[in-house]
Design a protein around this nucleic acid. Structure first.
Length: 336
DNA sequence: ACTGCGTCCTGGGGGC
DNA sequence: TGCCCCCAGGACGCAG
């Protein structure tokens, strides 16, 4: 399932292939793939044709292409993508070709194409306005002006050891310019403004403990911090030795810090590996798969020994999905 | 205001 | 062999 590392892999692949190219034709094969678009497929197609892709940006699991107008006008709109469960963005060098789950075909002036392929159609594409925000929205970081170093439009912000990770165009007011559906999405853990030791990270730690809910539910809350899905939530909890049902209002700040560090690290490592692929449902823009699934400690490993202590990994239903954990390393809280 | 649950979707796999 | 049910889960909308 595409979570932050998988979407960043796709973003980087897209940026390398489509930046500077102009859209000449758009075909929507399945209306559900543009269900968020005001005006439907017709509006979607007409808003894209003639526009040039100037940058590819990501926050959490959302990825968007900045578009400039036919007359070279400013970047007023973005083509926003969410991959959902099974979405893929594939780049093709030559026109034509088919795929059983091809939902949208975007043709470019040099005969290249971008395909939105999605078996389960939980994902979608939509064209929407770019909204200047002061702090990235309700779940975002409200802090001091990051300074001129952060203000270069769509500049890649190098994060070692992974590839460059842009986090939206920073405005002079310490906010970001975001597609309308992303305004309420919190900054992700690879965002420099949430780096360990920063005021942003401290604020996230505090907001996480403000609520009274199960810890995993908070990790999955995309308004708090975005990009974490079921796989990396379980992996981060295992690394931090925390049970998913620990209640957020009873956690000490230092414990939450360790968990956020663990989540950051596991996603960075996955990014270096090109993401996690269980099957052909998640791939890079060229169709190649990542290999981080081999490094997973607990996710999908029910019945196998914990890599740390040897106890048998358990799978439980939680929030209508699966939670994997080590019953010895991650003790269930006495009080729920 | 805040928390939690139902819903959308499709193909693969297991059981009988 | 065929059929049916379960499973995967991100984000949103709504109920309480």
């Amino acid at each position: 399932m595409p979570e932050l590392p998988e979407v960043e892999t796709v973003r980087a692949g897209l940026a390398a292939h489509v930046r500077g190219r102009t859209i000449t034709a758009v075909t929507v094969y399945r209306d559900r793939a543009v269900r968020r678009q005001a005006g439907g497929a017709t509006q979607f197609e007409s808003m894209l044709i003639g526009r040039t892709i100037t940058a590819v940006v990501r926050r959490g699991k959302f990825c968007w292409l900045l578009l400039s107008g036919p007359d070279g006008a400013g970047e007023d709109y973005a083509l926003l993508a969410h991959l959902g469960m099974s979405g893929q963005l594939l780049v093709r060098a030559a026109p034509g070709g088919e795929h059983p789950h091809l939902r949208i075909r975007i043709s470019m002036h040099d005969d290249g194409e971008v395909w939105f392929v999605d078996q389960r159609t939980f994902g979608y594409l939509t064209v929407d306005d770019l909204i200047p925000t002061r702090d990235g929205g309700p779940g975002g970081f409200a802090g001091p002006d990051p300074g001129p170093g952060q203000s270069a439009p769509s500049a890649a912000v190098p994060i070692t050891p992974g590839p460059g990770v842009p986090h939206g165009r920073q405005t002079a007011a310490a906010g970001s310019v975001l597609p309308r559906p992303v305004v309420h999405i919190g900054r992700d853990l690879l965002d420099p403004l949430l780096a360990p030791g920063t005021p942003g990270r401290a604020g996230l730690n505090r907001r996480l403990r403000l609520g009274r809910r199960d810890l995993k539910r908070a990790l999955l809350d995309q308004e708090l911090t975005s990009g974490i899905g079921n796989i990396y939530a379980d992996e981060a909890l295992w690394r931090a030795r925390l049970h998913y049902q620990r209640r957020t209002d009873r956690l000490r700040p230092a414990v939450v810090d360790e968990l956020l560090d663990a989540a950051t690290e596991v996603m960075r490592e996955a990014l270096v590996a090109g993401g996690t692929s269980f099957d052909a449902l998640y791939v890079n823009v060229d169709g190649t798969a990542g290999y981080f699934d081999r490094a997973l400690a607990v996710y999908g490993r029910a019945g196998q020994p914990c890599p740390r202590c040897g106890a048998i990994i358990v799978r439980e239903a939680f929030m209508n999905r699966s939670s994997y954990f080590c019953p010895r390393c991650q003790r269930r809280p006495r009080r729920l």
